[in-house]
Design a binder for these strands. Sequence first.
DNA 1: AATGAATGAGACTTCATTCAT
DNA 2: CATGAATGAAGTCTCATTCAT
Lengths: 199, 199, 199, 199
Amino acid sequence: MPHRAIQPQNSSQPTRGEATRLRLLNHACREFARLGFHSTKVSNIVKASGLSQPTFYIYFHSKEAAYEELIQEFRRRLRIITRDLLIQKPIGGEALVKSLQHSFVTFLSFLAEDPDLTEIGLFQPPGCTDTKASLAIWIADNIAQEQKLGVFSSDVDALTIARCFVGMIDQAARISREEQALEELALGCARVLCTGIGR
Amino acid sequence: MPHRAIQPQNSSQPTRGEATRLRLLNHACREFARLGFHSTKVSNIVKASGLSQPTFYIYFHSKEAAYEELIQEFRRRLRIITRDLLIQKPIGGEALVKSLQHSFVTFLSFLAEDPDLTEIGLFQPPGCTDTKASLAIWIADNIAQEQKLGVFSSDVDALTIARCFVGMIDQAARISREEQALEELALGCARVLCTGIGR
Amino acid sequence: MPHRAIQPQNSSQPTRGEATRLRLLNHACREFARLGFHSTKVSNIVKASGLSQPTFYIYFHSKEAAYEELIQEFRRRLRIITRDLLIQKPIGGEALVKSLQHSFVTFLSFLAEDPDLTEIGLFQPPGCTDTKASLAIWIADNIAQEQKLGVFSSDVDALTIARCFVGMIDQAARISREEQALEELALGCARVLCTGIGR
Amino acid sequence: MPHRAIQPQNSSQPTRGEATRLRLLNHACREFARLGFHSTKVSNIVKASGLSQPTFYIYFHSKEAAYEELIQEFRRRLRIITRDLLIQKPIGGEALVKSLQHSFVTFLSFLAEDPDLTEIGLFQPPGCTDTKASLAIWIADNIAQEQKLGVFSSDVDALTIARCFVGMIDQAARISREEQALEELALGCARVLCTGIGR
DNA sequence: AATGAATGAGACTTCATTCAT
DNA sequence: CATGAATGAAGTCTCATTCAT
């Protein structure tokens, strides 16, 4: 799975300045992910980028601004992923489990694709709390529609379910890279969420 | 819900030094929770404690040592809570939901009881990851026994279920203080976990 | 060779306070010698003495005062040693070499007897400069008398010779404990000083 | 006698940074010499240099690193001086005295030329001990060759003689600046070393 | 577009020294 | 005679940020 670096937004040829900016942003991403906001030094980012400190401030108002930009980029991507996962047809039984598994796989693959950005957007405080709160709301949107469609039970309100979902993804994302086949992990989560663990 | 401060371990009358140490530890807890490790300054802790900076270093080897002590205290308490939640009789249906609700309520009450310590032990990195990993293992222990007892389905392995559980608690803990009645929230989580959301 | 600790001055039974004072002084001596004035902490001295910090200040006005006292004690002893080495009879040839050797041996033995105090009084600045300057003057006194007596040549003035003597002792003292038999070393120095190295 | 400041090593035009570094080094030299390592504060060095504290740490890893650099510079110079003083022709009598006088004058002039650096390299512990030990070895090298050449008696081994030499220089260096004409002092030392003080 | 050089502000930590008992 | 407890004062070092080129 290739590390998906931050890419230029517009598809045309980037100017030299834009290229420099992206280089800084990508190295900042790696450093912030490794060390967290406070322990990451601007001096390290620019060293890794082969640039000087003043150059950093040409492209970013402050260290915090660069960090914030990375968070926003992560959320933007996450929003898109979530939008595409709405279940539009009434299904049930094992097909529903498969469908939920697909959702988990999609999320976990996305999060594993750019682990540094995920670290920053999903795990590092204080932003991670807001990210998850937003994600829960987006997912709750989907679930509410799916409840209306009869896909899901309405015994529990959509937002609570969404939060459970987010919690599962959060824990799963912490381990999916290393310990367990992603598909299998996603299946476990899907089963728990779909049918529960009571007998 | 009263803020449960860090208390002296041995029940005898604390000396003046022990009292000072606890005062520092409690204020450190508040500050660390509010601002995180890096943004918390020793100067603020001692100011809040009405003491001078050197006094802090009489009782703690370093700022980090004090922080670490708080983390360990949180984990110690969490371990005890978890141990007491093992379900020992085979139950099912709505009784099982109630029992799971009780577990969630117990955890969430505990976490809400000392929100500052919870913030440090459960939400602040990098320690939070280890705390949750440990908690998942402890809970998995319980679940494995409960599966043997026939309380829970064995379709999904105990550790995966435990992680889902931890994820739910994690998300729920973030909101239980403010937005929703704790009992109701716990019931939602219990229902999801016990019976799932599929129809 | 026993480590000659600082001893009570008056031979009567020392009071408890005097004993404590001496304990502090002896441990201070060891620490100052090992680490130098600045790197020696009062806290270490009292810890080694099994006492508390305020106790130190009962017996010494300050850290510096204790250090100064050790220097003075060293100089006092050195003064006595020097006084006793005056050559009172006209001798020459190999007998003179032997006599000078005896002087060197006496000094070096004295310095090796209490290496910690020697370190403080003879090697640690800034006091060491004054100690050596005083020693040179005392020795010059002897030499001047010995020159009058015809023991030594008067080609070079007594003070210059005394300084050469002090320089030799200084260097020899640095190594006499470890590398070379003291007697032999002293003989070499005596020969150089007495007959020179020219052919 | 001009104070020989630390100079740039390469003869090309120094950059601004190099100039700053040298300014710091020279002021550090003065301060270390006056007050010793511990009592010298970085704040004083930079104040004297007209710079800010962080600038010091741009050019030196630590206060200790700057001090160490000065010691090494002193030893480097001392090594060169010593190498040039080897006596290569067999001489004796008054000519030998003159030659030894020249050696003393050379050493003492060198040491007086940059008294601050000398203070650091030759008189301040703990480095001074190593410096003198090295110097003794270098000089012993010379003396051994000179003994082979028949310039000096072989009654005493070269290293012992060298240590006597070092001791004399050490004592002489302490006073040559102030109290006595350097030439005369050197002559006294040369006479003692060459012909001894016995009659 | 980029950087060599510099700094203001401030954090952690240490230690000689003193109170109050 | 001795100490548990506390602190004023200070020092080293760091780092985000900026100026001048």
